[in-house]
Design a protein around this nucleic acid. Structure first.
Lengths: 274, 274
DNA sequence: GAGTCAGTTCCGAATAATGGAACATCAATG
DNA sequence: CATTGATGTTCCATTATTCGGAACTGACTC
């Protein structure tokens, strides 16, 4: 249903070499894991070899360790695939996520008022990670895209989140962006993106005008805690044939209010400590 | 010291100290990660210190690395919580899981015939990990328990999976079990469990007679590939007031047939190679 | 102010990761 | 059927990382 993934080659290389410092061994192993997990097609040893740029011997050991730990599995014809332990980790992470729990009732309220799909997403680096969603007509397929990551620059959630970022962090983030065209409306430069962000900052909400998927629009509002450790957003999304831009404008204030309510709830419930 | 925490937690189990060899650094870091992720309540540094048995300095570095990599986050009052990167990994893993994709249409068929919730679960160590599910009336709460892990010894899926395991692996697995009472019917010894397994092996299906949750029953059948690299199962689950044991008996053959169909599909579609 | 507990930092010693090169396996090719 | 080439695996001396005890900080208690 969703075709959110980039086509072939655009940005794989960036994540591989980015981590060459800081976390030592762990970082290197994780970047290998990430290569396998984020790839579109199954990868064989040599694919990973070239993508990761590690020496043969090293890579081989890293992969064996990942296999042994259950983070990867080796399928038919020696292809490496993500392992089940990841799923287990993820379930626990999600179900114990405090932020999600606090926001959940607000999401439901927003869904009841609008009737359209509501998302909760958190900013992580240059991506928005979907943490929860409420939708009416649960399409039978894929239970949720929870955990899916979308680029900041072409989603309402992303733009909402960016719009409240302190200038330094915003600059950093913008600097790391790799623009890629998803639709005719996708922003392709920081400059063009900035215009939307300025608008969002003024109004308190942001739109996605079919910038990520054609025929899909949304309006989103930002959420953040006092220290900007948590920067997130909520959005109402709908198909273009049913949801006009005018309709979105009408929902905008509501979305913003709910976002503010969540922010307040966070500060109260998750302790003003710190 | 005191183990003031084990009281309330059902299935923390043994995995923490098990990995002390093989994967070197990675294994140790992962067991720390697992401690945090599988814990019921938020953990502070010293909690992890005692649970992991690592020296202070070491643990501190491991945690910093996990933080830096986004696998953990540090919430209010210095508590460690699972990080968002895990969710991202999980989404990719799940959506690209070949086995799940092949089985999906069969699950839907089974759901249409029975009208009750259908699960697909895979055996991993002493746990069953839920990989997919189809249910009619999406209860508003918790989108899915995909990725959730349940003990083998008290679920239909678990018993079905165990029943087809080659003797040596079965013995190994049974040896690692830590029995814990969930309901009045929960098996509490390998011996008592074995009786169910023998029955399941003969019939080709297994029951959960309210052994994990009261008022919840299910019937399950095993799936496995030729080399027993993949051992899994499907189940039909329902509330006791609506689903009698007699009803389950009637569904048993159907469940078994669908499981066999999936097994065949696996061998065909995922290559007899290897 | 003494005492305890939680978290952080330091540094020599121990250990695990590194990566080049040799080995193995299997197809396709001459 | 031997040759080539591409792929996956193993080995081992070197090197960089991790280890872990101990010492430091700071906060809170009695």
């Amino acid at each position: 249903m969703d075709r959110h993934d980039e086509a072939a080659s655009p940005d794989i290389s960036s994540s591989a070499s980015a981590h060459h410092s800081g976390t030592g061994t762990l970082g290197k192993v994780l970047s290998v894991l990430e290569i396998v997990v984020t790839s579109d097609r199954p990868l064989r040893f040599s694919d990973i070899l070239t993508l990761s740029g590690q020496p043969r011997g090293t890579l081989h050991r890293q992969l064996s360790h990942l296999l042994e730990e259950g983070l990867l599995t080796q399928g038919r014809d020696l292809c490496y695939e993500p392992g089940l332990r990841l799923l287990k980790f993820a379930y626990r992470s999600w179900s114990k996520n405090q932020f999600r729990a606090v926001a959940a009732p607000h999401l439901r309220r927003l869904h009841e008022e609008t009737g359209e799909t509501v998302h909760l997403g958190v900013l992580r680096g240059t991506e928005i990670i979907y943490v929860d969603k409420v939708e009416s007509r649960q399409t039978v397929r894929m239970q949720s895209q929870i955990g899916n990551a979308s680029p900041v620059y072409c989603t309402g959630l992303g733009k909402a989140a960016l719009s409240v970022l302190p200038p330094v962090r915003l600059a950093e983030t913008l600097g790391q962006l790799n623009f890629h065209r998803f639709t005719a409306n996708t922003h392709l430069s920081a400059a063009s993106l900035m215009r939307d962000l300025d608008e969002a900052r003024l109004q308190g909400y942001a739109f996605d005008r079919e910038e990520h998927e054609t025929e899909i629009r949304c309006v989103a509002a930002p959420i953040h805690d006092a220290g900007f450790d948590l920067v997130a957003g909520i959005s109402v999304t709908g198909p273009a044939y049913r949801v006009t831009m005018e309709q979105l404008e009408n929902w905008a204030r509501l979305v913003r209010q709910v976002a503010i309510a969540i922010s307040e709830d966070i500060e109260i419930r998750l302790g003003p400590g710190r």
